[in-house]
Simulated scan of single mutants.
Amino acid sequence: MTWEEAEYLDYLQSERHGYAWVMQHHGGLSPQEAREAALARYPYEPADAPYRGLIFHDEAWHWAMLAIHGDRYTAEHPELVDPSPDYRALE
């Protein structure tokens, strides 16, 4: 997918926000730690990066749950497979 810069930046900001929210509310991180985790998970990729935006193929909820609970979170915590209503309200 080819991203317009403004579109990419909007999506990047949105995913960082969602990831930080999950890390704070489900992962127990402080707001500052959650923001730092989001920046680390979603670094800016330059326009010429070959796979720019590939991380967006799964939403922030999924990536955060993997970080918090590990690869088997869907089996061990089936109640967390779908994002919570509070997370959905962020959109």
Score class of each variant (00 low, 15 high):
Met1Trp: 09
Ala6Pro: 05
Leu9Asn: 11
Tyr11His: 12
Gln13Ser: 11
Gln13Gly: 12
Glu15Gln: 13
Gly18Ile: 04
Gly18Glu: 01
Tyr19Ser: 02
Tyr19Lys: 03
Trp21Arg: 00
Val22Tyr: 01
Met23Leu: 05
His25Gly: 06
His26Asp: 05
His26Glu: 10
Leu29Val: 01
Leu29Trp: 03
Gln32Leu: 12
Glu33Asp: 14
Glu33Ala: 10
Glu36Val: 01
Ala38Val: 04
Arg41Gln: 15
Tyr42Asp: 03
Pro43Gln: 10
Pro43Asp: 15
Glu45Arg: 05
Glu45Met: 10
Glu45Leu: 14
Pro46His: 07
Pro46Asn: 10
Ala47Ile: 14
Ala49Ile: 07
Pro50Cys: 05
Tyr51Thr: 15
Arg52Phe: 07
Leu54Lys: 15
Phe56Thr: 05
Glu59Pro: 07
Ala60Thr: 10
Trp61Tyr: 10
Trp61Cys: 04
Trp61Arg: 02
Ala64Thr: 01
Ala64Leu: 07
Ala64Glu: 01
Ala64Asn: 01
Met65Lys: 00
Asp71Ile: 15
Asp71Leu: 15
Tyr73Val: 04
Glu76Gly: 06
His77Met: 10
Leu80His: 12
Val81Leu: 14
Val81Cys: 12
Asp82Lys: 13
Pro83Phe: 14
Ser84Ile: 10
Ser84Asp: 08
Pro85Ile: 11
Asp86Cys: 07
Arg88Ala: 14
Ala89His: 11
Glu91Ile: 06
